[in-house]
Nucleic acid binder design. Structure first.
Lengths: 149, 149
DNA sequence: GTCAGTGCAAACTTTTTGCACAGTA
DNA sequence: TACTGTGCAAAAAGTTTGCACTGAC
């Protein structure tokens, strides 16, 4: 992972009186390096493979901490478990999920973002974050279905 | 509940070879009459109070069925349990959730809906449903916070 | 040295499942 | 009557918690 990013996170955490532990560093690193979304269990498996010896409890506690401090984002695609992704310094984006193959496509659209702000203003609602997921069928799966007809 | 709506649902279910049971009717009725979102446990409590004697297993199985058949919508506000709301014949809407008081505000915006379709077209993605939740602070909670400063 | 952080195992919460029985079509 | 649907209780799955120990500052 980019050492600058890690340093920034560690410094920020330290400023808030949060202790920098080996476990926390490793968890941050794995989430950062992970291309896709990651869930608690996968994180646990990776740490186990690395023989890092980090317990599940610590993983959940660290994930909660990082979500609270806004370094990572927690999402739920209705799979019965939550997934996380690195957020700091990353541009905001939303997701499309294919109901056939499970693929997740990321997108970012400033018109939607702007419109959300307008809607919030109309409702005198002060937005802090949002999630948006579109469920449907991706191009590849539709092509496959066409062929099989 | 509106008997026409109930009839429509029952007829549609029957057409698909799904049996109409007392349990299913009661569950549909409660979700329909519920103003707010409802979760499986609350549904169970209401049924218990009515001495309807519907088991949790049946509730979950019926909820799954109704979601699949698109009569109700399942949502997750990150509370560790899912909530459901009646969908058939209701205009689509999204949600704002206040992080202070937990209130959920519904809104519908055709600009966002249109824009979502455009984005999907650009990605050759065929949308079937979507969820959008904005998290933040509602007007009332912000007013309260101002006073307490 | 102090106290926040960790590991472990047990507890908890929500949801799912197997199987015998019930009730709809 | 023939299955689909149900209830029950047990299991599964994900997450949280209590408590004694560890390690960062």
């Amino acid at each position: 992972m980019d050492p600058k990013v890690m340093d920034e996170i560690l410094q920020r955490l330290q400023k808030e009186g949060i202790k920098i532990t080996q476990q926390r560093k490793k968890i941050i690193e794995i989430i950062y390096d992970q291309q896709n979304h990651i869930n608690a269990d996968t994180l646990y498996a990776i740490l186990k493979k690395q023989k890092a010896g980090v317990s599940r409890a610590t993983i959940y506690r660290t994930l909660d901490l990082l979500v609270e401090k806004r370094y990572i984002q927690k999402m739920d695609f209705g799979e019965g478990r939550c997934v996380y992704e690195f957020k700091l310094g990353q541009p905001h984006h939303d997701h499309m999920k294919c109901l056939r193959c499970g693929k997740v496509i990321e997108f970012n659209d400033h018109i939607i973002e702007l419109r959300q702000h307008t809607i919030c203003q109309n409702h005198k609602f002060y937005p802090m974050s949002h999630v948006m997921q579109i469920y449907g069928i991706c191009h590849e799966c539709r092509e496959k279905e066409k062929k099989n007809l």
